[in-house]
């Protein structure tokens, strides 16, 4: 077995990421109105400490930490998978309108009175709309779409989905419409329970399995679609599977947390200098980075002093949008050429 320096660095990076995610998860369990040290948290998790500590850690904060970890991971993974599929470093679920469309699916179900926020109809609708949005996007943009086309089509879809979500909530007899709009458009992990974990996790895991199963094909796709096909990759099937995987994961995530943007865009970029550009090798580190980012953001919204709750989706957008602008600056040549 040949172990190159690059391979050793990849292993080291992945190991370090796992450690960071564990530390952040413990910090997340310790953060809130009642602060707890990591040791107290571990003790409470294992069934020690006072009853109050146990309830706070195991029933109030654990579901929130699990969701932050799982949702961050699937967003990072989806971003890396879309970038691999489209051979394009600016691809990400939120730029393509997938979470916004998923939110609209969920809101529509609620507004029509077809389900409450505890039924599986909610993630099902979110997944269906996420699938539709990515499918429409790739159909509109065409097979070998350039950067510009994809981003414009994504902008159109996310704007439409956002407007449709606001409209559905405006028209519904819900007295808390304004509050609800902010939840679905901005995303939050406040007050999530194990019911929400059960609602989202199966779909997130299914989406992750689908995306991971295609990882080798992403590497072959580096050589272009036709060459990948000449190597035995069913490119059409791969596209459908990636859309399905992203829809399952993002739809499941949005159904319980609303739209949380930009993690899918940022995570693979943070990993490229350490892992390299191989789209297959980027998947797991991007998922870990996504998990770390969302855990950190969800800790931050709880410790930033403010009179009202800051939504975690606001924070990820505040960090994500400037990052996106920086990427546009870097990719300016490709963008103005109109080819990818």
């Amino acid at each position: 077995m040949v172990t190159t320096i690059a391979a050793r660095r990849r292993t080291l990076t992945t190991t370090a990421l796992v450690a960071v995610v564990i530390v952040l998860a413990l910090a997340s369990l310790g953060t809130g109105p009642v602060r707890m040290s990591p040791l107290t948290v571990l003790d409470a998790l294992a069934g020690g400490g006072s009853d109050v500590q146990q309830i706070i850690v195991r029933e109030i904060r654990l579901p929130r930490a699990i969701l932050a970890l799982a949702i961050g991971a699937i967003l990072g993974l989806s971003g890396a998978a879309l970038q691999g599929l489209l051979r394009n470093p600016l691809a990400s679920p939120s730029l393509f309108g997938a979470p916004q469309s998923a939110a609209f699916g969920a809101v529509l179900i609620i507004a029509l009175g077809l389900a409450d926020i505890r039924s599986y109809a909610l993630p099902a609708a979110a997944i269906a709309m996420a699938f539709l949005s990515v499918f429409v996007l790739l159909a509109v943009a065409g097979r070998s779409a350039g950067l510009l086309l994809l981003i414009l089509a994504g902008l159109a879809i996310s704007s439409l989905a956002g407007a449709a979500t606001a409209l559905a909530l405006n028209l519904s007899p819900n007295p808390f419409a304004a509050l609800e709009i902010s939840f679905w458009l901005l995303g939050s992990l406040d007050d999530r329970s194990f019911r929400h974990v059960m609602l989202a996790l199966p779909f997130i895991i299914a989406g992750a399995i689908v995306l991971m199963s295609q990882r080798a094909a992403f590497r072959a796709l580096s050589l272009g679609e036709e060459t990948a096909q000449s190597l035995g990759v069913h490119v059409g099937r791969l596209r459908l599977l990636v859309i399905a995987g992203v829809a399952l994961g993002v739809g499941g995530a949005v159904a319980v947390a609303g739209t949380i943007g930009f993690i899918g865009l940022i995570a693979p970029h943070l990993m490229r200098p350490l892992i390299g550009h191989d789209p297959a090798r980027l998947l797991i580190p991007s998922a870990l980075t996504g998990a770390a980012l969302l855990l950190a953001a969800d800790i931050a919204v709880r410790i930033i002093p403010s009179t009202t709750d800051i939504k975690v989706g606001v924070l990820t957008s505040l960090i994500g949008v400037p990052f996106f602008l920086y990427l546009i600056l870097r990719e300016r040549r490709a963008l103005s050429g109109g080819v990818a």
Binding site: R87, L223, G224, T227, V233, H277, D278
Partner: peptide, 23 residues
């Protein structure tokens, strides 16, 4: 199959590109 242009979309190491031949 060796198409025109020798496109590689990501800056992959040479050895990995050649290894794709064994895919």
């Amino acid at each position: 199959y060796l198409p025109q242009g020798h496109v590689v979309h990501w800056p992959l190491p040479v050895r990995d590109v050649v290894a794709l031949g064994r895919y």
